[in-house]
Write a protein that binds this DNA or RNA. Sequence first.
DNA 1: CTGAGATCCTGGGGGC
DNA 2: TGCCCCCAGGATCTCA
Length: 270
Amino acid sequence: MPELPEVETIVRGLANTIVGKTIADVNVRLPKMAQAPPRVRFERALRGERIAGVTRRGKYAVVALGSGRSLVTSLRMTGRLVVQRPRERDYPGTHVILRFTDGVRLSFADVRTFGRMRLVEPGEPWDRDLGVEPLSSGFTQEGFAAMLSGRTTPVKAFLLDQRRIAGIGNIYACEALWEARIRPGRPAKALTKAAIDRLHLAIVDVLTRATDMRGTSVDDYVDAAGLEGGFQNVLSVYGRLGLPCARCGKPIVRTVLAQRGTWWCRTCQR
DNA sequence: CTGAGATCCTGGGGGC
DNA sequence: TGCCCCCAGGATCTCA
């Protein structure tokens, strides 16, 4: 499931390969996957557009177009954005294809069809409800502490709330809480200042290390070139039910919190 | 406002 | 071996 490090890796790959290209035609095989503003036709609006840049906001990949419009893609769990050479075979489950004038294609594939591409008008505040970028200077210890204060919600549920911090998903929420030695079910407001600072540091550290390793491939994730990431080899808790905690040796447990599988160490996460 | 629960999907894994 | 069932999970919506 692509979270911030995976989307960042995809976006960097796209920035290196498709910027400057011009869209020759667009093929939408599953209409719900490709949304456009009222009275705008997705395929027709994109035809002839030049790719001006590719950036990331939270877990969204944002393709800036020459006209000032943007193509915002949410990959959800199994979505893939992959660049393909001319005549290269389509990925299984490809629902939207942008073909450039040089024959290269950008394919949007998703076996579960939860992902979405959305064409956005210039200046449209599509990311209004997204919180702070955790790897930006705007994510401070003080700001984080203020967000947590008074909240009764379990700290893990808080980390998954994209309106507060944008980009953390289930894998990195579990990993950051383990690194900070905090029990996932602990109410946000019950964290001490020391614990808040540990968690702030752990979030930045985990996301940075995972991005450096080009993300985590546990099931479906691949980057824009179709390559897997490397962080799945160094996970501390996620998916490691029964395996020994790297810190204390006790077995990792799995519980359910906020309707999500939650892996953690009962001994060293308090 | 806040939080809980349902919903969307289908490949793959577990159980028998 | 084969088949069935159920689960994974991000965003969005509804409801209390």
